[in-house]
Design a protein around this nucleic acid. Structure first.
Lengths: 249, 249
DNA sequence: CGTCGTGTTGACAGGAGTCAATGTCAGTGG
DNA sequence: CCACTGACATTGACTCCTGTCAACACGACG
């Protein structure tokens, strides 16, 4: 807030092709003139501080974002219903797709730690897409991915036990970190227990207990928010176990 | 099955602009040459019988579909985990978006009753979109909608009681029927109690009990699969009640 | 030092799953 | 026409997972 006027980072000249996440970003596969246009279009706003809100629920939809570093959560408030965390976004992931085609943004986007994002004005993306079927494909591809992710999440929330949810959450994070070149077995949970509980549909106490149980069973080690997946394979097996809550029905 | 050779319906000359669902379909807002191209592209396969599968999980993704009449469910099988219903599709709704960008179809699509669909080869849609930003917008719009639907569903599955889920399910169906010109208070549930349970993350017995309770409370009347929403407003209120399963934590 | 946010742990209760028995209905075949 | 079958649905009894309430620990911060 003290640097309101300095909206852009020093590296104004930054270029997508030099970005370490280029190969995982929306720009994947773009080259030459299209990539240059893309570069020219995007903004790199100042970093968000922990707890700062990038987008407010109900804001007019205008931009997509990519996480450069740090992480975000999406929080949706529905009427009198308690707020709910619907998504966590890690570096290299595209944020805001669920606002497309709706007048406004469906949830708050809140930084979980110091976070850098790139900002893509969607209207300009639309223009670029008319000239670049590669970019169009890329965006459709990403939205399809997100639909499938949501589907998996719905399966998880519906009829799986607390242990299975946590195991799935941890191994899912592991996979996402691995894909982006971070350690798949040792990482920092930037979200609180409350966030995890909200996301997984569990009470905060249950989150705490399950994590404690996993530690006892030597599946993980835990120091505050730093977690090591000691037995990732076993976690995966728990997550996929046939016996959920409706196994026999 | 007796008409295998007659893959197309008699009305081969059918045109989108004459379809009663035109204004709700992917074709909304298209006109002139683009609409003609669209018409030329799409197929109208023979109707599906109840229980017949339109698409098998793992099939190579190739088409989108629109429901002309009848209804479909999407069923996802994950490893040893019990099958799960992830979606119901009503007339006028677009089917198959979640296959975009993935090599193959993420679930079985099964007819819940006699069902007619239109079939859009996606590769040709992609070509058409290059010329028609209206069509492109329309498809993005629809995918965004679906993302937001999934998000609502995740909120529902995570931390709401059985009563709230059923109330939400019924009022949601009501709204979808209303939007398409059917009665919002009196309709036929083409899906079984088992399907509903799987979709809502409830045991089949719970579905039955909640429906029974709603009937006792004069919120609905029920005769087999025919349902009347007697007190739609009250149902809505139940669905939105603040006190879910994590209301106080 | 007190307070607040966060996290852990224990005791308890309730909602919803599981198991089991029974009812209903459509389709089939004798 | 009726018995038989299987799918679907309802209802009751019981269990247990997980949410709720409450107490407490810990670190950050004013």
């Amino acid at each position: 807030m003290t640097f309101v006027s300095a909206r852009h980072l020093p590296y104004v000249g930054a270029r997508c092709e030099r970005c370490s996440l280029h190969s995982r970003c929306l720009t994947m596969g773009l080259e030459g003139a299209v990539l240059a246009d893309f570069d020219a279009m995007l903004e790199r706003p100042r970093p968000l501080k922990r707890g700062e809100t990038l987008v407010h629920q109900g804001d007019r939809f205008a931009n997509l974002y990519a996480v450069r570093s740090g992480s975000l959560k999406q929080v949706v408030a529905q009427g009198e219903v308690r707020d709910q965390v619907t998504h966590f976004y890690l570096p290299g992931e595209l944020v805001g797709l669920d606002g497309i085609g709706g007048g406004d943004c469906p949830g708050n986007l809140v930084a979980l730690e110091s976070t850098y994002v790139c900002e893509f004005p969607f209207s300009r993306l639309e223009v670029l897409m008319q000239d670049s079927s590669a970019l169009q494909n890329r965006l459709f591809h990403t939205m399809g991915e997100e639909l499938r992710d949501h589907q998996r999440m719905m399966c998880l929330l519906s009829g799986r036990t607390a242990d299975q949810r946590m195991a799935s959450f941890l191994s899912g994070l592991s996979e996402r970190f691995r894909l982006r070149g971070y350690s798949p077995t040792c990482f920092y949970l930037s979200m609180s227990r409350g966030d995890i509980g909200s996301y997984l549909g569990l009470a905060i106490e249950t989150v705490s207990r399950v994590l404690g149980r996993f530690q006892q069973q030597q599946l993980i080690t835990l120091e505050g928010r730093q977690v090591s997946l000691v037995a990732l394979e076993k976690l995966r097996r728990i997550a996929e176990e046939g016996a959920g809550r409706h196994s026999g029905g």
